[in-house]
Amino acid sequence: MAQLSDRMRELVQPHLRSLEPYDPNFTPTRVNLSANENTYGVLPAVRAAMDEALAATPTNRYPDPMSNDLRDALAAWHGVARENVIVGNGGDELLYNLVLAFGGPGRTLVNVPPCFSEYAFFAGLAQTRVVDVWRDPGTLLPDADALVAAAREASLVVLTSPNNPTGDVVPAELVRRVCEACPGLVLVDEAYGEFAEAGTSAEPLLAEHDNLLVLHTLSKAFALAGARCGYVIAAPDVIDALAAVRQIYSVNVLTQAAALVAVECRGEFSPVVDQIRSERTRLFEALARIEGVRVWPSEGNFVLVRVPAASRVRERLRDEYSILVRDFSYAPGLAGCLRITVGTPEENGAVIDALAALVADELSADEGAAHD
């Protein structure tokens, strides 16, 4: 992990000296299943429509600062008004703006780790205290009562559904309890929501709780990770506050054009999403049959597995098979764990076969060492 130089540590603000930049730990490989991307890509017919829209988009003028055409399309899709929607440069910008607007010194963000590390990172940037409500070490599910108790003292609560990297969804009743308990705001990050079972979104609760925000992205199901486009649905006054702190022109004209096509053609992505769900089941079942592997159920486009010598297995996958997965074994609560994106049938077959061979090697090595 990269760290600031001694010179920079003297120059930056004191509260930033110990922060480390986000590191996706990327290495070019034949099969990349490390970043929860949609490895199928944009469908040819949709890509053709995007290319036409991009070709017709002037780049000599600044973009619409609020992405209003895209906001209108998103609002129509979700059955809300334009005033309930804000678009950002990926979900990450919106997450940071949330902490910038509503966090800060003397305020608290409740986090439910293991989860997306950027929540705590952004809180640190904004000098916001983080209270961690840790998940059960076996099931990796949240402690509902402890979470509600912590929410009573929180300025912000961030829930992820499905959660990255554990794959579980937050039940609607728990979201409701947290919203009722929290005097501040509750954000449900549904970046992977399209891969979950129907009816699991927190959006229906928006009408009941004006302190609820729901975050979406086009990076995952809609294969636009490279375009960087996310959006939040919330009460109009919450949207106004997020708009007040945003960087101007943060969503460029090309992203707005491509995203609008993706939203208008969203039905075309359904077969791919269905196939990813089917492949997720196949991947889960195949990995669960490998001796020495534990795999957790997932509603995202990834699965979390625990394997012997996880970091070494990850390196061997990369070096011997040219397959890249994400190593979480260093993270508190995730000892021995790797996260594997659900890819194409060919990609999933490759990682299943490779993991079976490598885990067998590790178990054999352990047995040999025990006999020495």
Rank of each mutant, 00 (worst) to 15 (best):
P114M: 01
L70F: 04
Y22I: 13
V245A: 05
E93A: 15
V157C: 07
R280P: 06
R176M: 10
T344R: 07
C179H: 01
R107F: 09
R312E: 13
A150P: 04
L355I: 05
Q275C: 14
L140Q: 03
P165L: 04
Y192T: 05
Y40W: 15
E315L: 13
P63C: 03
V232Q: 04
P65G: 12
G349C: 09
I276H: 03
V342D: 02
H209E: 08
N84P: 01
G167S: 09
N348C: 10
A262S: 07
S364F: 05
E52Q: 15
V245I: 00
L109N: 02
C337G: 03
R312Y: 12
D72G: 13
G91R: 09
R277L: 07
A207R: 14
L218P: 05
E93T: 14
A370V: 10
G336A: 05
D189G: 00
I323H: 06
M1R: 14
A350K: 07
A234N: 01
A227I: 09
D72T: 15
M66S: 15
A35L: 11
V157L: 06
E279V: 09
A45P: 15
S18Q: 15
A286N: 09
V359M: 04
D237H: 13
G333D: 02
I248C: 10
V273E: 04
A235G: 03
I352H: 03
L100A: 14
